[in-house]
C-alpha cells in the first residue's frame, strides 16, 4: 500500500526555490493589488508576463498548465457572457450571425481573466516551488498557532490514509454482498454501510492519535524548536521591501494623479 502525500511541490533547483515562502506570499498580494491600484490593462499584462517568467525560471511552468487549463473553460464563459450581455455594452466589436459581441463587455471580461490568471500563476509560484512544511513552519514562526500548523501539516498525510481506510471499508462491505457501483439507488443504499465504519474508524484513530500526541509533548508550553531550519536566499527580505515600496508608490501616484 503506497500512500502518497497530497502536495503539488516540485523538487527542483532554481532561484525561485531559494526564495522564502513569506516573500512568495507577499508577491501574491503584490501581483493582485498592483494592477488593481493602477487600473491599467498594460500593467496587468506586464505582471502576468512577469509571473510566467518566474514560473519558467522555477522550472514549473509545465505543472501550471493543467491548472490554467481547468480554469480556462470558466474564463471562456465569462468572456462570452460579458461580451454578449454586459449592461455597459454599447460599442459593437464584432458579430457572428445574429450574435453580437460588444467592446465594453469584452474589456471587463479581459480584466477579470487577467486577474484570475495572475492570481493562479502567483499562487502556483508559491505552491509548486515551496515545500508545504516549509510554508507552515514559516507561518508558525510568524505567529501561526502550533496546533493549526499541525492540522495543516497532517491533512496532507491523513487524507491519503483515510482514503485507504475507506477503500478497505468498501471492500469489507462489498464482501457482504453490497453493491457500491451502478445506479444511483444502489449507491444510496451503500451509503450508510460505508459511512458508519468510516466515522467510527476516524473516531477511534483520532482518540488513539491524540493520546499518542499527548505523550509526545503536543501540549507542551516550551518554546518549540525545529529539526530543520530551511535556508533561504537572503534576497527575500529586500524583495519584500521593494514590493512594499512599489505598492506604496503606486497608491501615492493614484492619489495625487
Amino acid at each position: 500500500m503506497v500512500i502518497k502525500a497530497l502536495s503539488l511541490y516540485q523538487d527542483r533547483t532554481s532561484l525561485v526555490h531559494t526564495i522564502d515562502p513569506i516573500t512568495k506570499l507577499v508577491f501574491i498580494l503584490f501581483s493582485l493589488s498592483f494592477p488593481l491600484i493602477l487600473q491599467n490593462i498594460y500593467w496587468s499584462v506586464g505582471i502576468l508576463i512577469f509571473c510566467i517568467l518566474l514560473l519558467l525560471l522555477g522550472k514549473v511552468f509545465k505543472q501550471t498548465l493543467p491548472i490554467l487549463g481547468l480554469s480556462f473553460i470558466l474564463l471562456l464563459s465569462i468572456l462570452v457572457i460579458q461580451g454578449l450581455y454586459s449592461p455597459k455594452n454599447e460599442t459593437l466589436f464584432f458579430s457572428v450571425g445574429f450574435i453580437r459581441f460588444y467592446e465594453e463587455g469584452l474589456l471587463v471580461a479581459v480584466r477579470i481573466i487577467l486577474r484570475v490568471t495572475t492570481l493562479l500563476c502567483s499562487v502556483c509560484i508559491l505552491v509548486l516551488t515551496t515545500k508545504p512544511s516549509d510554508l507552515i513552519q514559516s507561518l508558525m514562526k510568524k505567529g501561526l498557532p502550533a496546533k493549526i500548523g499541525y492540522v495543516l501539516n497532517s491533512v496532507m498525510q491523513i487524507i491519503p490514509e483515510m482514503r485507504s481506510t475507506m477503500a478497505t471499508i468498501s471492500d469489507a462491505q462489498r464482501s457482504r454482498g453490497i453493491e457500491t457501483e451502478g445506479k444511483l439507488i444502489t449507491r444510496i443504499k451503500a451509503f450508510f454501510p460505508l459511512l458508519g465504519p468510516v466515522i467510527m474508524n476516524a473516531l477511534v484513530s483520532t482518540r488513539e492519535r491524540s493520546m499518542a500526541l499527548e505523550v509526545r509533548g503536543f501540549n507542551s508550553t516550551a518554546k518549540k524548536s525545529y529539526l530543520v531550519e530551511p535556508t533561504f536566499s537572503r534576497i527575500g527580505f529586500p524583495l519584500q521591501i521593494v514590493m512594499m515600496v512599489v505598492l506604496a508608490g503606486a497608491i501615492g501616484w493614484r492619489i495625487f494623479q
Binding site: 481506510t165 471499508i169 471492500d171 462489498r174 464482501s175 454501510p193 458508519g196 465504519p197
Partner: peptide, 16 residues
C-alpha cells in the same frame, strides 16, 4: 459474496 465469505482483519471496517 454468495459463495465465498471473507472476515476482514479489523472488525471496525464493517460494523455499522
Amino acid at each position: 459474496a454468495g459463495y465465498i465469505g471473507l472476515v476482514f482483519q479489523n472488525p471496525n471496517d464493517q460494523i455499522f
